[in-house]
Design a protein around this nucleic acid. Structure first.
Length: 420
RNA sequence: GUGGGUGUAGCUCAGUUGGUUAGAGCACCAGGUUGUGGCCCUGGUGGUCGGGGGUUCGAGCCCCCUCACUCACCCCA
């Protein structure tokens, strides 16, 4: 405790067994499901030129203004650890001319992100996201596919009690008009808003819509809705998406007050939340960003993606899923040095077949070795001593039940094959 | 960056109005007669009571400072 000199940095943590098995399960499921939708993995560096993030996420967002791990490298360049995944993927898309691949181009990534924030429940300075990005398809069908894929992932790993919310925040055509409508609506109520919202009024008025303060909740009664201000294109896109989601039998709710923190979003936005998580209740979030590739110097390319917060998903899984750590299939309890050596050889043979095999410590008692095997939840224990070595007959015991018996050394593999 | 809460064994926590070598449960290790786990019994390992200073004859308990963790706000996955 206090005698410990070294510890992880604030907001960073080790991921250890048995938790790690949940992480692996989520990652494996994601890879499997994503592949059925034609998404391929992309790995980008965790560090980029600072401008990659500041230009895409938005110069005046909190992420860029105060939450990035930014420093100057030895070549006097400003570099930053990635605070999210999309900017890097878009940079890579443009840099590697991925638009020349058959359209649409679909990618996923998994890895750590970094934000210098005060940690709290479900929020860390190093956190992991699994994300996907689909380029060069502006159709609401792609929106529906991406959302369906997310839904299948979450149900595939056994998550329950999460809800999908969708919204459209319009495009460069219609959002300015909505923003003006919002500003004029709140202009006379500004003094009654909380201090944070007075600031939001100038900086990001859409944020007033999801303020938690009760006074602001009252003040925004009757505020104009983005969905009533969408241009023709955005409106039909949004309506079509809803039709498709219903067709796919994905349950969702409309949330016209859902806003986005990142500047690059257009049209469709969506979010998956859970009531079991505390204040940071978003499990996954995403949306369409039809102008970002162009802003990065690439061809005009629509795109949509989402990111899922691993720690939050794991937290939810821990609430419901039973934790089953893998366990050895075979344990050799050995008595005497000669038996120990013999079992070392046997263990190698069985491991070649992919079995997890443990060999006990010949220096400790049989009782102690049995206890150890039990605590590891081993399926089969074999006892090897001088007698067995001489006769070539091994004693076996099934720890789950209490069955025991003998088996010829030469029949062991057959025996195990029959048992499992 | 702002506010609240908590810091006693690996984990979860007791610790009476400040008073002798600081406890429990769980976990871990080992025994309970020759080579058999789980249940039970016994024993053992393990703590400078987050750190520093102060008050006192005496501080895990009181005061100050500090650090860490945690929850919430801001913001966000």
């Amino acid at each position: 405790m206090s005698s410990q000199q070294y510890k992880t940095l604030k907001g960073m943590q080790d991921i250890l067994p048995p938790d790690i098995f949940l992480w692996q399960k989520v990652e494996q499921t994601a890879r499997q499901i994503f592949s059925t939708y034609g998404f391929q993995e992309i790995r980008t560096p965790v560090m980029e030129s600072t401008s990659v993030f500041s230009r895409s996420i938005g110069e005046s967002t909190d992420i860029v203004e105060k939450e990035m791990y930014t420093f100057t490298d030895k070549g006097d360049r400003s570099v930053s650890l990635r605070p999210e995944g999309t900017a890097s993927v878009v940079r890579s898309y443009v840099e590697n001319h991925l638009d020349k691949l058959p359209a649409p181009q679909k990618f996923y990534y998994a890895g750590p992100m970094f934000r210098y924030e005060r940690p709290q429940s479900g929020r860390f300075r190093q956190f992991y996201q699994i994300g996907v990005e689909a380029f060069a398809d502006s159709s609401p069908r792609m929106d529906a596919e991406v959302i369906a894929m997310l839904e299948r992932l979450l149900s595939g790993i056994g998550l329950e009690g999460v809800s999908f919310q969708i919204n459209s925040i319009g495009c460069g055509q219609c959002r300015p008009g909505y923003r003006d409508a919002l500003l004029s609506f709140f202009s006379e109520k500004k003094e009654d808003l909380c201090d944070d919202c007075k600031r939001r009024y100038d900086k990001n008025p859409l944020r007033i819509l999801d303020c938690k303060a009760s006074t602001c909740r009252q003040q925004r009664q009757g505020a104009p809705r983005i969905t009533d201000h969408l241009c023709e294109g955005c409106r039909t896109h949004f309506e079509k998406l809803q039709t498709l989601l219903s067709l796919l039998q994905i349950s969702y709710s409309l949330n016209p007050e859902m806003v986005r923190g990142l500047d690059y979003y257009t049209r469709t936005t969506f979010e998956v939340t859970s009531q079991s998580l505390g204040a940071q209740n978003a499990v996954a979030a995403g949306g369409r960003y039809d102008r970002l590739v162009k802003e990065f110097g690439g061809p005009e390319t629509p795109a949509i993606g989402f990111a899922l917060g691993m720690e939050r998903v794991i937290e939810l899984l821990k609430l419901t899923a039973l934790r089953s750590a893998p366990s050895p299939s075979v344990f050799f309890a050995v008595l005497g040095d000669a038996a120990g050596s013999a079992c070392l050889v046997l263990a190698e043979q069985l491991r070649k077949q992919g079995r997890w095999v443990e060999v006990g410590d010949a220096a400790s008692s049989l009782k102690s070795q049995m206890r150890r095997a039990d605590r590891m939840a081993v399926r089969h224990v074999f006892i090897m001593g001088d007698d067995e070595l001489r006769s070539g007959m091994l004693k076996w015991k099934n720890l789950a039940g209490a069955a025991q018996g003998e088996v010829k050394l030469s029949d062991m593999e057959l025996f195990l094959a029959g048992q499992s």
